[in-house]
Each structure stands twice: as C-alpha cells, then as structure tokens.
Design a protein around this nucleic acid. Structure first.
Lengths: 259, 259
DNA sequence: AAGAGTGTTTTATATAATGAAACAACGTTT
DNA sequence: AAACGTTGTTTCATTATATAAAACACTCTT
C-alpha cells in the first residue's frame, strides 16, 4: 500500500485480498493485513462500495466483492467470444466421459482455467474458473507447452525451470527442463498429455490441444478425476472423446485470438 | 471524468466504456468520448494494463478488458456460491424445454441476469450474463417484483413508474403502476409470470420464482423464445418443468443470501 | 516531403490522497 | 452501570499524487 505509486494499483491491490479463502474483510482487519492506515483503507472500500464493486454485508458490516465486478468480468471479450461458443461442447464431452472437463489457456507460463463442467459423480476435482496452476505439473499445461513455437517454448521452460523454482508437488512432478523436453516430445507424438499424480496424489488428468485456423495452440481441453477411474483402457476412450470435442471447438472458434 | 472526485470512481468509470458494443478503445478516442485529457486517460489505461485489468491489442494498439478482470469477476461469491450450485439445474431444464433458460435477480429495480443456458435451436434469444433489463417488461422481473415484501414492492414500483419513466418497448408493455399491481396479483395467484412481447416483438418469456428457506424471493427462473413456439399448451408444460427446476434449486441454495 | 493522425513523455501547477487524532456506536468486562 | 476495548467513520493540516498543455516520436496518407 505504502509503496504503491498510484491509486489504480492500490485499488486493485486491495481487491486482490478478497479471495475464495477470505472473501470478507472488515476495515481495520484489512488495514492491518496490508499494513496501511485505517482511514485510507476505509476510503477505498467505501468508494468501491458506492459504485457496486464491493458490497457491504448488512449483518457482519464486512465488505465483499460486488455484482459490478461480476458484471465487468462477464464483459471480458475472452468470455463472450470464446466461452459462449465452447461451453456446449464441454457439456457434451463431460456427459460422455462423466468426469470433470476443463478448458484452459497459457497465461504467464501458467495454466489459466477459463471454463469447466463438473463431473456428475460425487468424487470430483474442485477447481476455480479464473485461477491458475503451474503449467509444468498439469496435463493441460504440458499440452499447451508442447505445441508452442520453439522459441516461445524455450522461453517458457527457462522461466519455469531457470528463473523460478519448479516446486515438486508429488514425487512424480517433472522438475527439470530436460525431463520436460522429453515429455513434451512424447506428447507431440501421441497427440495427448496425461498427468498421473504429478500435481496431486490420487489425481489424474488427460488433455488435448485445441488449435486455431493457423495451427497455433490456443487452448487445451481436459478430463480429470480420481486415479482409480482412469485405467489404461478408459483413458483411450477419454482421449477419443476429447479429440472429438477439440475438433468441434476448433471449427467454432476459427481464427479466434485469445491473448 | 472532470467532475469525478476520486481515482476509484475514475478508474471504474473508464472501464464502463468497454462494452459489448464497443469493446476496444484507443487513448485519444476514449479521451474525446469521456471529455478528458489525452494524457490523463493514457495514464489510467497504462496503469490498468500493467496489472492485467486491460490488455492492449498488439495489432490495433487499442485497449480492451483483460484476463485479470475476468479472474476478479469469477471470484465474486455470488458466482461461486450460487451459480456453481444452480447451473446443472438450468442445464436439465433447458434440455427438457429446448428453449433458452435464464436465472436472474433483482438489482437496482432491474432484472440482473446471473446465468443462462442457451436453446439448442437455431432461433433463440441472445442476452448477456451480468447485464440488466427493465424489471417491468420481463417475466423474470415481474416475478421478482410480485413476491417482494409489500413495502419494498411499493418502493420499486414508485421508482419505476414515478421517479423514472417506464419506457414502452412494445404496445404491450405495462406502463402504469396500477396496471402492474394488477399484473403482480395475477402472477401471485397463478404462481408464474408470462411476458407476451412486452419487451420485444416476437419474444415470449415464462418465469417462476425461486424462494430461499425463509420464503423470500431470491431469484427467478425463466424460459424464453420466439412467440410461435410458446403456444398455450406448451406454456403449461414449460411452467411445470420450470417449477421442478426451481424446487431443485431451492433445496440446493437453502438460506443463501444474495445481495 | 508535408500533413494528420496516433500513442507517449515531460513539467509546473492544482488537486486529491494521506494518516493521526477524535468521534460514534457497539459489545464485553469490571 | 461505568469503564474498557472493539469496531466503523469523520475531520483536517500536511504531503504527495493527479492533472493538462505542450512537445515528442511514430506511422500512415497525401
């Protein structure tokens, strides 16, 4: 707060504190957290409340993200142009596979979840649209990396393995650039990626690339669920269904430019 | 711009210009539109771009809403707590009826669309999640008004018909408070609302209230489509299906507090 | 080669943001 | 019931940031 130069940064820095884990904040509470003055934080929150960006809970007197933000988020062209076209395909793939289906893009070297359709089954993966996971530890991310132009791919891998530290989430996580390069080759030859508990123990994910008209990867489509439901034979069927879905999506999006 | 007191207002006022109709803006263009200085607008846009709230198109050099905003919008608890629970029900209702299904709440005396599932048929209604329509001209809005506590209902109707001017969208639009009061009575006795071309010629919409545990209306569920597909007999079936869906949703949301 | 558009940077000036302190309105504790 | 410890909110002199005109850099068009 203190160090941030301008109000735009401050405004959105404050909004960042409203997470799924902590969706509600009081004035004093938030001021202590950000290390800023009570009255300063109060002004920001009150100003955002007055235009609907924040709501104030009448009972608890605490602030939370408001409908205006929801409205703005839904105006983002990504959602309008992309999700509205692709969502029905996710639904039909999910019905076919009966596992949770995700569609994601690469953003800042991370897997950025754009949309999902949840498995009808009780045991399923919980994820958040609009959030990110490390690309090197998910099938979606590996797919997106695999089909990147060589130069870009190299930049991404250097960022992941050189500039930052690739954390080991499980003992199966791929933690070196050379191992990942090998893996990406495999993915390209088999046309799909699989993540066998590389991110979370017990979780398996299968992913397929989605190309635009110019044969560039723009997104990735996946099915994920508990390990016991992803036996070899089933995976083959899943891949086939995902490929059908990816094809249908490609035809719908045409030359769509994502980022 | 000139008149706005603080940066928070200015920031979001600028974002408001990025609509579905005009999703991309150049610096000079936007500065002229808002009647403000070029360099001031530039700073705001550049600052928002630096944190991902805006993206700059590499080719056109123009700004548009960015992924960060999409991310923030998806964090709004409304979406997380409400839509994720209710969406599957919308899907099954839509499959049953084969028309576009909407769920909406009342916000600032308007019908605020939270979620939708589109009709598989070619001819269908296009609407935008996160946008609003006048409550007095839609079945969704009329349902939401009908079940409001008397005092609140009166306030809303006064706002709609006294403080502001109720526009006539078609010759069937209800444009007086007394006529609307009558209509709301009808809705309460029949348990559903219908909009026969009151908002748009050729468009019919049927809506059902959704109550929380305390018997308060929290949302409304609707099916809408072209007039020729909404004959009397079909409407009865639609209402029955919608009521089933509303019931299922009510059980899922419990005491959920919306606004 | 000049002109008319862009987006961007610079700068003195004007304006808004800041934070300590005081206040109000709660519960809780003494 | 009075004192205390919490909240959220308001005030105001001080400080720092936002502002807009002008200049600049760049890309098309003429």
């Amino acid at each position: 707060m203190l160090e941030l130069k301008n109000s735009v940064h401050k405004t959105f820095a404050l909004l960042e504190y409203f997470t799924d884990q902590k969706p509600e904040w009081g004035v004093t509470e938030l001021a202590n957290e950000v290390g800023s003055n009570k009255s300063t934080v109060f002004r920001f929150l009150a100003q955002m409340q007055s235009i609907g960006i924040l709501d104030k809970d009448e009972l608890t007197e605490r602030y939370r993200l408001g409908l205006k933000l929801f409205e703005l988020g839904n105006r983002v062209q990504l959602r309008k142009a992309f999700i509205e076209k692709t969502h029905p395909e996710l639904v039909s793939v999910a019905q076919n596979i009966t596992e949770t289906v995700h569609i994601a893009v690469l953003k800042n070297h991370q897997t950025f979840y754009i949309d999902k359709v949840e498995s009808p089954q009780g045991l399923k993966i919980s994820s958040t649209i609009g959030s990110s996971n490390p690309a090197y530890a998910t099938a979606l991310g590996k797919t997106l990396l695999a089909y990147l132009p060589e130069e870009q791919q190299n930049q991404s891998l250097d960022f992941i393995y050189k500039k930052t530290k690739a954390v080991s989430f499980t003992n199966k996580t791929i933690t070196t650039k050379s191992a990942m390069l090998e893996e990406l080759q495999k993915i390209k030859s088999s046309q799909y990626a699989i993540d066998r508990e590389e991110f979370e123990v017990g979780l398996i994910c299968v992913a397929i690339p989605i190309f635009n008209q110019n044969q560039q990867v723009v997104a990735s489509l996946s099915a994920s669920g508990p390990a016991n439901r992803f036996k070899e034979t089933k995976v083959k069927n899943y891949v086939a269904t995902l490929q059908q879905g990816a094809l249908a999506i490609q035809q719908k999006i045409g030359a769509f430019k994502l980022l």
